[in-house]
Computed example of a mutant assay.
Amino acid sequence: MASLVYFKKISEEPHSIRYSFGEDPDHMTRDLTMDIESRTATPDDDRIDYTYLKASRKINAVFDERSQWPERGMSVS
């Protein structure tokens, strides 16, 4: 069984970036905030679950590859 998570940048501040994320690209109902310096994500709803972990890890992985925060993306496993 495949697992999908989509994410999209919704705002960027000097020290943080907010992303919406979810299992449906047309209906991402949750947000996370990424601290740019520590590269630590925090779910805005305080729910640390598989979908949140998958999104935050993929965002960091893309940053590792490109040295740039992604505008959008997805993770499939």
Rank of each mutant, 00 (worst) to 15 (best):
D49M: 13
M28R: 06
M28D: 05
M34Q: 02
P43D: 06
V5S: 15
T42H: 03
D44C: 15
H27I: 00
K9F: 01
M28W: 01
S56E: 11
A55N: 05
T40A: 03
R47G: 02
D26W: 00
G73R: 13
A55F: 13
V5P: 14
S67T: 12
E23I: 07
E13A: 06
L4E: 06
R47V: 15
P43N: 09
R39I: 03
R47Q: 12
I48N: 04
P70K: 08
H27K: 00
R66A: 15
T51V: 15
L32V: 05
D24H: 02
F21G: 04
H15E: 00
E37A: 14
K9D: 00
R72Q: 15
K54D: 04
E65I: 07
I10F: 11
T33Y: 00
E65D: 12
R39W: 06
P43H: 05
R30Y: 10
N60E: 13
K8T: 02
S3F: 03
R57F: 13
W69K: 04
E37M: 13
T40S: 09
F7Y: 15
L53Q: 09
H15D: 01
P14D: 12
V76F: 03
V76N: 12
I17F: 05
A2R: 14
G73I: 10
H15T: 08
V5C: 14
R18E: 15
W69Q: 12
P25G: 03
Y50S: 12
M34A: 01
D44I: 03
S67W: 12
V5H: 11
P25D: 03
R72H: 14
E13N: 12
M28T: 01
D49R: 14
M34Y: 05
P43L: 10
T33G: 02
D26M: 05
I59H: 06
E12W: 00
D44N: 13
K9Q: 14
P43F: 09
I48S: 01
R39M: 08
I59D: 08
R39D: 01
V76C: 07
S75N: 08
E37Q: 07
S67G: 08
D44P: 00
E13V: 01
P70M: 11
W69G: 11
F63E: 11
K58H: 09
D44A: 07
K58C: 05
H15R: 10
M74K: 03
D24Y: 08
R47H: 14
S77M: 10
S20F: 06
P25I: 02
E65N: 07
T29V: 04
S20W: 08
P14E: 14
S56T: 14
D35K: 07
E13D: 12
P70H: 06
K54E: 05
D46I: 04
M74P: 01
Y6L: 04
